[in-house]
Simulated assay, not measured.
Amino acid sequence: MKLNALLKTLGFLALAATPVVAGTSAPAKNPKNPYIAPPVNDDLGITASLGYDTNYVWRGLNFGQHWVRAGLNGSLLLVGGAAEDGAGSTSLLWDAQYGSLAGDQDHFMPGGAGNASYQRVQLGAALSHDFGPASLSLGYRYYRNMGVLSTLGGMNDGQEVSLGAATALGPINLSSSANYDFVNDYWYVDLSASSTITLTDAISVVPYATIGYGHNMNWQFARNTGVTSTWGRNNTSNFTAITTGIQVPIKLNSRATLTPYIAVNIPMSGVQNLPLNGSPDNACSTVLYGGVTLSVRF
């Protein structure tokens, strides 16, 4: 009797506990509609890069051979655009760059000696607004010139304000900028065109061309050094150079891209007339050069 009473009691307790246990158990998974966690957006909007150029060509002037560089750049969205393509958005663009002539092989020493060191730091920021058909930017850039070339050439640091514009005409991307260096008192304006040709999901080909135009140009050299004395302070304006080439961006994975390139810089009268004829590969000659950049997005 006692055993039967005990069994009945245990059965009653189990029956009473059943609704509580069922109420706290996890619902069965639906194999037809499995739960998928939303992706975590861990992109900081920052890109780090390392690069090498056989020649450092800046605004049509060939500073020297074997340029090694590193940089950081990013974009911070300030105002989101209402359109699906981002039109109406405003962003803060920034970058920091450092470069150095490896082996001190410059193109400015008398007689083509090519033994002056040179390093440059650039810090820039710009506000960019996307209007849909085109985007406009207003920016500031600081240049810090260092090394023997900077000292002997009497180079000044530079500070520029710039106005930029970019648009697309079918497959052709166009961009232009007007830059005024208020420390060295010169203007530089450029116009660039490029197009992206997709070969595979990972490889593209980007042909491009740029033409530059200067007013009272001195490339941040002191005007009494003779390097840029032909421009003087007499409102001289002229075309500097045409640079054209091909980039080949290669996506290594979702974040890393390797971009080799080859280009030719063709000086125009504004550079050809500079008093820099010390060697066959001097700063004023046409040069075929190339390089590679590894960039990683975080």
Rank of each mutant, 00 (worst) to 15 (best):
P133F: 11
G164E: 05
N218H: 14
Q247H: 15
S295V: 01
T47S: 09
F63H: 08
G112T: 14
V296N: 02
G232M: 00
D42T: 13
T54Y: 01
A202D: 08
P19H: 05
S254L: 14
I266W: 09
Y261Q: 11
W219H: 13
L163S: 07
S135T: 03
N4V: 11
D181Q: 12
P207H: 06
R144A: 08
S229C: 04
W231C: 05
V227P: 00
N33T: 06
A166G: 07
T286Q: 03
N30G: 08
D53P: 03
L258S: 06
S75L: 04
P39Q: 14
N253I: 09
N55V: 04
N173C: 08
N179L: 14
D190F: 07
Y140H: 01
Q97T: 14
L258H: 05
R144S: 09
I250A: 11
I211T: 15
R120W: 00
L3G: 09
D42C: 09
L123Y: 00
S175Y: 13
W219Y: 14
P31I: 15
V20Y: 10
N30D: 10
L191E: 14
F108C: 06
G124C: 01
T198V: 04
R120C: 01
T230L: 11
S135P: 01
I246A: 10
H215L: 06
S285G: 02
V161F: 01
A165T: 09
A202S: 12
W187M: 12
M155F: 06
F12I: 15
V21T: 10
T151V: 11
A263G: 13
V264T: 13
N4Q: 12
A241N: 06
S25Q: 10
S135H: 00
I46W: 05
A193H: 11
G45M: 11
T236Y: 10
D42A: 13
V20T: 14
A263H: 12
P207Y: 07
S150R: 02
G139N: 13
N156A: 00
G64C: 04
P267G: 14
P34S: 11
A82Y: 02
Q65N: 00
H107M: 07
Y118T: 03
S279I: 07
F298G: 00
I203N: 11
S135W: 01
P133R: 10
V227Q: 02
C284E: 04
K32W: 11
S194L: 03
S49K: 03
R144T: 06
V183Y: 07
E84N: 08
N234M: 09
T196M: 12
S75K: 08
P249A: 08
I266F: 10
G226E: 01
A165G: 09
T236M: 06
V79Q: 02
P275D: 07
A178Y: 06
L123V: 06
A134F: 07
L3F: 12
L6R: 03
G103C: 07
D185K: 13
S176D: 05
Q119L: 06
Y180T: 15
L61R: 08
K32T: 12
T90S: 12
G111C: 08
P171D: 01
R297C: 00
S135V: 00
W67F: 03
G291Y: 10
L163V: 15
A96H: 15
A202F: 12
G112H: 13
Y188M: 13
T198E: 03
Y143K: 10
V287C: 05
Q220C: 15
G88W: 05
V148M: 03
